[in-house]
Design a protein around this nucleic acid. Structure first.
Lengths: 137, 137
DNA sequence: GTAAACCCTGTAGTGTGGTACAGGGTCAAG
DNA sequence: CTTGACCCTGTACCACACTACAGGGTTTAC
């Protein structure tokens, strides 16, 4: 297989730091397109697949399920996707994202208070933390 | 069972909006302490358990696994052993949280641009979402 | 020209985080 | 003093997102 700008599944897996099986799994789930095949039936991936895989991974880390990631990836405006429905879905995702940010900020604030308390603690006192983790909206 | 400031598992489940089974599951996993029991063996929870359960739920929604939640809750540790290692853990979580916020803001900005494009009715064939997380991989 | 290293399909198994019984005891109301 | 709503333990099952074979073909490096 001469080097022809495409990647085998193994090379892609290495480049994107995921397992081979994971890539086939994502293909099955429709998260990545089925790539063209070599005469012997081997998948040949374009370089951009690396970006897509990495996006999937990071979106997952942000708390999106695979089907939510699929929705994110499907959001684009072009000849085939009309503006109306795309806009609606994009707005929904945007709300999800903003809500996640709000929650994360609240958690972050709690953690920061925690860290501050640790820094300012009196030598003899315990690390008084539980209240800091409590909700209080 | 006269009202004695404690909650049955069902009352707690109702107050914290989780299933009974989930509470027992968390107890098993060490996420909540085994509460005292009534003579008949019924769990009697203090009011604070509601806060703890809600914290667990919220932290989970933000992408923390149950064992990470356990870590967060364990920051409460006991006595002298506390502050040093606790502070380190808290800082690590804080960094994770801040990084997530940065990524989510990027996705949010991307979605906002997409919505704007929709409003301006300027079809494009690129995928604005995919481009957002490219930098810094 | 053969062995290692890769690829294929397909199915089974894993870990996480629950959820749903089964089979039984307890308690409060009427 | 029974009936229904609650509680107990324990096990089985579920969805999600992988992960690991099995059984086979292909490519490449020596």
């Amino acid at each position: 297989m001469s080097h022809d700008e495409t990647l085998t599944i193994g090379a892609l897996a290495g480049a994107a730091d995921v397992g081979r099986e994971t890539i086939r799994f994502y293909e099955n789930k429709g998260l990545i397109d089925a790539p063209p095949r070599s005469p012997a039936g081997y998948r040949r991936y374009p370089q951009e697949s690396v970006q897509r895989l990495r996006f999937i991974r990071r979106a997952q880390e942000l708390g999106f399920t695979l089907s939510e990631v699929a929705e994110l990836l499907a959001l684009r405006v072009d000849e085939v996707s009309a503006c109306g429905p795309v806009e609606v879905r994009a707005r929904e995702k945007l709300e999800q994202v903003d809500a996640k940010i709000v929650d994360l900020k609240r958690i972050g604030a709690s953690l920061r208070r925690l860290v501050d308390k640790c820094e300012a603690r009196q030598p003899t006192s315990d690390c008084p933390i539980l209240e800091e983790l409590d909700e209080r909206s």
